[in-house]
Every structure is written in C-alpha cells, then in structure tokens.
Design a protein around this nucleic acid. Structure first.
Lengths: 162, 162
DNA sequence: TATTGTTATACTCTATAACTATA
DNA sequence: TATAGTTATAGAGTATAACAATA
C-alpha cells in the first residue's frame, strides 16, 4: 500500500521497497500537480482536459475516450470549463450531431502557465540527485512507459505526418 | 502538461522530456492503482484510508492531517468505510471528545489483498527493464523521496522505538 | 475558552438510464 | 436503426460555517 509508513517488512531501515518507492514517488508528483493547479482553482481532471486540448480539437466522444470517462461526464466537465471561458463548443459542419471542443486563448494561456510551473516543480525534485542520476531517472521512466505502451500495441511516438 | 502528446518541443523523436517522463510514469502508476482498487469498489482515497490504518489507530483529527483533508471530509470518508464494515470507530478513553479509528478484520484483509495485487502490477511494469535498471529506478525514486522529505524537515525513517 | 467531531450546505466529479437530434 | 450529445438522477468526495460535547 502506497501510503503505509516507511518500514516495509523484510527491509532494512533507510530503505523503501521497490513498489513503495515508485508508488510514493507517484503520489508525490500527483500531489504536487494537484496543489499547483488548485492555485488556479483547477482540478486534476480539468487540467487534463486543458492538456489534451493543447494539440487537438476533438469531439465530445473523442474526449470521452481520451480521458477514459463516460460521455455524460464529459458534458459536465466541458460545461464547467466553458462557463469559466477556458474552452469553447462548436457544432461540427461535417456531422451536425457532433460537438467540437477547443481551447480559448484564456484556456491556452492558463495551460501554458501551469505546464511551466509544474515543470519547475518536478525539476526541483530532481535537483537533489547527482547529475548522472538526474538523467538516469527520466531515462528509466521513459523506458517503462514505452514498454508498457508497446505491450498494449501502442507506439508512443507514432506520428500522423509520415 | 502531463497529458500532452509525446512530441515535446526541442526533443528528438523517441524521447520524452524529463518532466514528461516522470509525470507520465506517475499517472501510469496512479491509474494502475485506481483501476486495481476499483475492482473492489474502492476509490484511491478509501484505499489510502485503509493504508494508513494498517499500522495506526489515529483519531479523526490525526487522520485529517495524515490524509491532508478537512476534518469534515474525514467524517464522511470514515462513515462510508464503516458502513461497509472496513473500519470501526471507538471513543477514546483518554479524551472522550476524540474518536479512534481502526481497521476491522475485513478491512485489514482487503488492504492486504490490494497491496499484494498492486505490488504485482508495479513489478510487472519493471520487468521490461534489464535487471540492473530494475534496481536503479526504485533506488533513484527513494532518493528523490528522502531528499524531498528532508527538505521539509521530515526524516522518512524516523522510528518511535528508539 | 479551546478543541474534537458532526451536521448542514454547496459544489465538483462520476456513472447509468432515458431522451433528443441527426445520420 | 445507430450514433452524438444532453438531461435526470444518484452517490462519492471535498470544503466552509455553524454546532454540540468535552476539556
């Protein structure tokens, strides 16, 4: 369990189990993002919405798949963001049932501000490591991500323009 | 932004920025836990509640500090867990205002089941790495955690029995 | 008076089921 | 008929403010 206290069974003092260490790091980063975006009165899911809209203008349906939520949840999520002027709805001209969601200028600027703040937060966490380890950690993380994605038949670096 | 697509500016194809890699790994682990505990109709916060109770019997107030929630949020959280028979309330004999929260046998067994399932999930993610890296990743994660904690004046490995 | 916990209230987030409009 | 999206409804999770009981 991630939130259990440090002393895992069978581990020497001053050590976390592999799983504990990764789980706690995950909570640390997640929590840092949560606190950061809370300063802008955003939740994690609202932030993810802004994030996926930075380089897409998906339909509500596509948004539901991207965020792994039910379409009815997307309705409310987008409506609250729209009420705050962060995103805009537009009826698709190709299919008049479909609604296209895009970032407003305000939404884009907020997304950028958060991204750079958060980047600084994570960089700060890494600064305690010696320079060689500071490169190794993201490299290993990438490796796990790429392998995990490929295990699901996804190429993390697939490009549309090829 | 963590949920942005892979190609970060200024990065060669096939690479994630350091921050992106860590953020995405964090979301991967968080999501894996979320899906795992959903099988038992638990949320992340309910799971964290069970987790902190594995080696503590705190008051509501202490629980609020441990989980970084308002005490009024703890009331509902504990009540829902209590209704499911996972935790129990008991009035403190030392201070009759205080309520002590503990894990029931059912709660403890559920917490153990989840911990071992989740441990397997994370181990599986690590198995794609060569053995040396498989040790390095948790080691680096621990280092970041310990340094982060000490920066806040906390000794992650403090013991009560010394 | 101060502290512990609960209650009342309000809002976000989520899902299921029923609905409308378009295809 | 099938699909895209919204609405109605219900419940978890969260915070603020007001409250009761105990210290």
């Amino acid at each position: 369990m991630a939130s259990r206290s440090a002393g895992a069974p069978g581990k020497a003092r001053g050590e976390l189990s592999a799983v504990d260490a990764l789980a706690q790091l995950s909570f640390l980063i997640h929590g840092a993002l949560e606190r950061r975006v809370a300063e802008h009165d955003l939740s994690i899911i609202q932030t993810r919405l802004l994030g996926v809209l930075r380089d897409r203008t998906p339909t509500m349906n596509e948004l539901a798949k991207l965020l792994e939520l039910d379409k009815s949840s997307i309705t409310g999520l987008v409506s609250r963001a729209e009420r705050r002027g962060l995103v805009a709805r537009a009826t698709s001209s190709a299919d008049r049932r479909a609604v296209l969601v895009s970032l407003t200028a305000a939404g884009r600027s907020l997304a950028s501000a958060i991204a750079s703040r958060f980047e600084a937060d994570v960089s700060m966490m890494l600064e305690s490591l010696p320079p060689s380890d500071r490169k190794a950690l993201p490299r290993l993380a990438s490796q796990v991500l790429v392998d995990h994605a490929s295990r699901q038949g996804i190429d993390l670096f697939a490009t549309t323009d090829s």
